[in-house]
Design a protein around this nucleic acid. Structure first.
Length: 458
RNA sequence: GGCGACAUCGCCAAGUGGUAAGGCAAAGGUCUGCAAAAUCUUUAUCCCCGGUUCGAAUCCGGGUGUCGCCUCCA
């Protein structure tokens, strides 16, 4: 298995710290708003990473933190005029609800920053003792100049950072790139007591503390969006290595950005979409297909057209699964023969190469085609098995059953019976009218040699 | 100013030295009252110029274009 490691900017063979176990930490949401469609990318991608590691026989521990104290929450609290703790509660709930709607598996741990304040203070104290941190008027900063290789993840040099056009005008700092470890509380802001006075921890400290606590000194994979490389992950490394002289993580994986019709998503451009907005129009699998059809490190462009195409592609998988009558063949004992194993191997080979999900999906299409040609149900089993690894075709019991009350089902059957009589009388006009009207309600009829099938489509 | 990524059919996209996967869309055939589904068939020499090589979309150099990071951000 090869993984592209941001630390060395190339692919390398993945070797876990402990054989058969994979420990990963992915930076989760700051709960100050509903998360947007761009945030969905790392959620979906690392969901697949975890699935695949498990599929090939590893025990995986995934940590996805929740940042529930931060300037952004404080600002939001002022806007919505409710306490910070309620903002956090509201959007944490929304986060989990939206993840569920997107069919993203929960992580193994969802630590919240506010539950680890004590440990963060301990870490900052350690940094202070080792002279990596200094306090000015109740604020504590990390001194980046003390770190020999500061910038090794992002490939930045301190000189270059200083030469940058936009330098923070904070005269308290010894170096412009020094970052906040502890921030003094202003009146009415949430606060915790510390050796430096009342305040709150800086964002970069929480991930170090929580990953260390839940995953140990050096864990396998640290993931997140490409924009977190600098300064967030760089600063995590600086703190972690300053305190225990161990690598924080061996592999750093970063997903590319999502753009909206070629432009960065932002509220000012009025092209800001929350995941829940998109979910109103398109289903979770269409969104998942959209993301996974492109390599995770590349930037991806979101627009109405492309999500429709994804939606259609997923629908075509379901056509095959429905035609195969999956729910009745699912428990059949079937063995894979050479041809099935060849497809399976193509799939794992693609995934083993730095999670080439686009290629893996193409294997799913190959299998679909093979089924349609041969009607061999083992292909359907394989399709579902591999699809599940990518997070497709989950909860088929629900998705494949026509979820209506019995009476409604009977009514539809009634319409179908009348329509069949009209068809016998060759009254095509009326027969088509019934089909069209039902379609408008989302009920789709399909005439087959065995009779008329119907299904609910969104 | 510094650092980096990307440019493949109408759209999306895989491919990292051996002669262009796949999806969506489109067109035509089979099937069908029609439609849907399925199935068969058709559609590119890889931004430009130069170089390395027996051989390059793939490596090197130079252009052009798009985007990102350097500030909170997935």
């Amino acid at each position: 298995m090869k993984i592209y490691n941001t630390l060395i900017n190339k692919k390398e063979e993945f070797v876990p710290v402990e054989n058969g176990k994979v420990k990963m930490y992915v930076c989760g949401p700051t709960v100050y708003n509903y998360f947007h469609i761009g945030n969905a990318r790392p959620l979906i991608f690392f969901d697949v990473v975890k699935n695949f590691f498990e599929y090939i026989g590893n025990e995986v521990t995934l940590v996805r933190n929740v940042t529930d104290i931060d300037d952004k929450l404080i600002n939001r609290s002022l806007e919505e005029k409710i306490p910070v703790s309620e903002i956090a509660e509201k959007y944490t709930k929304a986060f989990f609800a939206d993840c569920k709607a997107l069919e993203i598996n929960p992580a193994d741990h969802h630590p919240r920053a506010t539950e680890y304040i004590g440990e963060m203070i301990e870490l900052i104290k350690q940094l202070e003792e080792k002279k990596y941190a200094y306090e000015v008027n109740g604020d504590v900063y990390f001194s980046v100049s003390k770190v020999e290789k500061y910038g090794k993840l992002s490939g930045k040099k301190l000189e270059d950072l200083q030469a940058g056009a936009r330098v923070e005008a904070n005269k308290q700092k010894k170096h412009p790139a020094d970052f906040t470890l502890w921030k003094r509380a202003k009146p009415n802001e949430p606060k915790w007591t510390s050796p430096w006075g009342d305040g709150r921890p800086g964002w970069h400290t929480e991930c170090v503390v929580m990953s260390r606590k839940l995953l140990g000194g050096t864990f396998d994979i640290h993931g997140g969006g490409i924009d977190l490389i600098f300064p967030h992950h760089e600063n995590e490394i600086a703190q972690a290595e300053a305190t225990n002289n161990k690598k924080l993580a061996n592999y750093w994986m970063h997903n590319g950005y999502l753009n909206i019709e070629g432009e960065k998503m932002s509220k000012s451009l009025n092209n800001f979409f929350t995941a829940r907005d998109i979910l109103k129009k398109y289903n979770a699998e269409a969104i998942r297909f959209f993301f996974l059809s492109k390599h995770y490190r590349s930037p991806i462009d979101f627009n109405e057209n492309i999500i429709k195409e994804s939606s259609q592609a997923v629908k075509n998988f379901y056509n095959t699964i429905k035609n195969a009558d999956y729910l009745t063949i699912r428990n059949n004992e079937l063995e894979y023969s050479e041809i099935h194993l060849k497809h399976k191997n193509n799939f794992t080979t693609a995934m083993n190469d730095d999670f080439n999900t686009a290629k893996a999906i193409s294997v799913l299409f190959d299998i679909t085609k093979a089924y349609n040609k041969t009607k061999d149900p083992a292909f359907i089993h394989l399709l579902i098995e591999l699809g599940n690894v990518l997070g497709f075709f989950l909860d088929l019991d629900v998705k494949l059953s026509n979820d209506l009350s019995d009476i409604s089902s009977e009514l539809i059957e009634l319409f179908i019976n009348y329509r069949n009589r009209l068809k016998k009388e060759k009254n095509w006009e009326m027969a088509d009218a019934i089909r069209n009207d039902l379609k408008k309600m989302g009920i789709v009829l399909k005439d087959t040699p065995e009779g008329t099938d119907w299904s609910i489509e969104k």
